[in-house]
Design a protein around this nucleic acid. Structure first.
Lengths: 221, 221
DNA sequence: GCATGATTTAATGTATGCGTTAGATCTGTG
DNA sequence: CACAGATCTAACGCATACATTAAATCATGC
């Protein structure tokens, strides 16, 4: 590959990965020097990466105390899901307005198939991956670059919480059904129904997730 | 003041101001060295500031060609207003659910008074300031930190376009009426109505703005 | 013991220098 | 004149050095 990426970019993606995988635990503090040693580069690209992560809402900067990995509370969770619910529902509405062909909707169809296959094998990881792909594709079909960007940001912020709770929840049969219905509404060019279906779907997912966090006493993840 | 702010912070706010005031014109390119000279500091804080601005969607980074000030197209405008419409409408709904007292809503009331006063004097600048204050307060009352953050980001991105078109539009009498009605709905604790009123209000504002841009041939601002 | 001011420590903010390399310019050829 | 390759230029990416200063530690008087 000719695309030699900069140390700053590598620092950003590596730190993001470490945050998502909880190698840097939520709430923990990290000095620039520590991270620089960890990633084998000087403080300069680390500083730049930290600023980027702070803008992405993944860490907070505490002068003289390094960066703190953002911990997500139940309230944060609710706020984030509310944003996702609204924006993705608009995306669903807009997608329905586009009168996409079956061809255009093939990716979406494939993600649903993948979700079914994953459930059949009881492979939660694969299921989550396909579920994410569905939501991502939905947003893409909505044709609004800002929504894409914001949805990605919000998803990033709840990534840890979602992976923690992934194995706690009952078999998500309803999710697969919801996705199929939404695809049908988009195919049929019914923006109102697409919006309503997706709104209810996300709202339901939000409540399941919050209930899980509360039940398991996960105040901050 | 004991709060000595860093050069990076100063670079961020100064560059933001220059972008909003079009001292750095939309679409223009600027090298790190040029900006460093301009602000009287070394490249290091400038580089950091540029990264922050890029994450805020105000500039794009073009390796070896400097930062380019983001120019907003009519399509961008539509996308941004759609986001604002959805999220502020949710904020309005949530605000109505809070059952705020008259006391709690006093700021909102004051901004409406200020809008009326500004219109009476035909002071567009003051009107715009009060209008912004109303929307900001509305979002605050909705109690969702992410929505506050996103709304601010979206408003920043359309700031230039709004100030350019401020004097082109007919007297915005309807806006003031809309705001009053919304306040009444929030006071009355009617979330459905609050949402619907605000949704229509924002949608209307979006259309007025887009129509102005198109009519005046402003493809990118 | 405890509070308060002095001292120390170390993390940060910033400037600087330099190697790298993308673009720009130049040069010679078909 | 157009174009490919060689050369040049300068913007950038990064490491490093150092001054600054917040926090921690210590010393001292009550």
């Amino acid at each position: 590959m000719s695309t030699t990426q900069s140390n700053t970019q590598r620092a950003v993606s590596e730190l993001r990965r470490m945050i998502f995988d909880a190698e840097l635990s939520p709430g923990s503090d990290h000095l620039e020097t520590e991270l620089a040693d960890m990633l084998g580069m000087s403080r300069t690209p680390i500083r730049e990466a930290i600023l980027v992560l702070a803008e992405q809402g993944l860490v907070v900067l505490r002068p003289r105390r390094g960066m703190r990995v953002m911990a997500i509370s139940v309230e944060d969770m609710r706020d984030i899901y509310d944003v996702l619910t609204e924006l993705e529902s608009l995306a669903a509405e807009n997608a329905a307005l586009q009168r996409y062909s079956l061809q255009d909707l093939s990716v979406m169809y494939e993600t649903i198939e993948a979700m079914d296959a994953a459930l059949a094998k009881d492979d939660r990881i694969a299921w989550a991956r396909a579920d994410n792909a569905f939501h991502k594709e939905l947003v893409r079909l909505g044709k609004n670059a800002r929504i894409e960007m914001i949805a990605t940001m919000m998803e990033d912020q709840v990534r840890r919480a979602k992976s923690i709770t992934l194995h706690m929840r009952p078999t998500p049969l309803k999710s697969n059904r919801d996705h199929r219905e939404l695809l049908t509404a988009i195919q049929a060019g019914d923006p109102i129904k697409a919006r309503e279906l997706h709104h209810a779907h996300r709202r339901g997912a939000r409540n399941v997730l919050i209930e899980l966090l509360v039940r398991h006493g996960l105040k901050r993840v």
